[in-house]
Design a protein around this nucleic acid. Structure first.
Lengths: 136, 136
DNA sequence: TCTTGACTTGGACGAAGTCCATCGTAGGAT
DNA sequence: ATCCTACGATGGACTTCGTCCAAGTCAAGA
């Protein structure tokens, strides 16, 4: 993530203060913010930033492959800046906390050919659910 | 699914025409309807049924463990009546079609102890993504 | 410094889902 | 068979999350 700004500039991204702030907010490990949380933190540094810009910027980062959208059941989408390091998620059923994890094994390979129904399977997303130490 | 109504009655569920129709709509394999689709199909048989009742009933079925909510990214939740048969999902990135699949291997066992952060991991949800034959 | 097209803004809009006061009814009690 | 009543259904208002758009702003190349 650290040189995200450089990579984006290299791809012809026009660098604006809003985009810079959004990118900075997303920096770090185990960061899984909702769009609203991103907006809140971005607005702390740049009060005039609009919700629309945050949504636009997050959407662009997702398309560029720099940020992943994390599926949620019923709640708001979460954005994960750790896109360059393949990983899966461990979610607390109590408080919703998300941790990045790295299972061993080959999940895609575990899906037999006859179970693919002709699909060209390109990726797999694994969510482990359980209670964190605090909620147990 | 076939004896769902009997099981529900056995748990003290008050049987109403609305609940019966919702349960019937959810019958079958590879059924992954959104709440709105359930409402549409239920209304074909029972025109006065309200959206709120469909949401209530689906929510109760989920709590009872008779129906699973399928995570989606950005789209409406889907409801999967195949809850008694453990399985995972294969989702088309193009049209959103969902198929039930049964990968081999032990996904929970593939998460090393040191990657569990003290969580009591109880379940794992795997989503394979790719293009279906129609969308490819 | 100028120019221009890409970016930002905020408010309206839309989809998905929840809430609530009121009415209806399933099913046990009589 | 009828009555009661608590549980369930209703629909419309409301909330949350997200998108769209016309108008204004500004980054960066000429």
């Amino acid at each position: 993530m650290s040189d995200l700004l450089g990579r984006l500039r290299g791809r012809g991204w026009r660098m604006t203060s809003q985009r810079r702030v959004v990118a900075e907010v997303l920096d770090g490990d185990h960061v899984h913010l909702t769009a609203d949380e991103v907006h809140l933190r971005a607005a702390a540094r740049l009060p005039e930033i609009s919700r629309a810009t945050v949504y636009n910027t997050l959407g662009e980062l997702v398309v560029l492959g720099e940020v992943l959208e994390v599926s949620t059941v019923g709640r708001a989408k979460r954005y994960d800046p750790n896109a360059r390091n393949p990983h899966q998620h461990l979610v607390c059923s109590g408080c919703g906390t998300v941790r990045d994890v790295h299972p061993v094994g080959d999940a895609i390979g575990d899906l037999p050919e006859e179970e693919r129904f002709g699909f060209a399977v390109g990726s797999v997303e694994i969510t482990y659910r359980g209670l964190c130490p605090g909620c147990a």
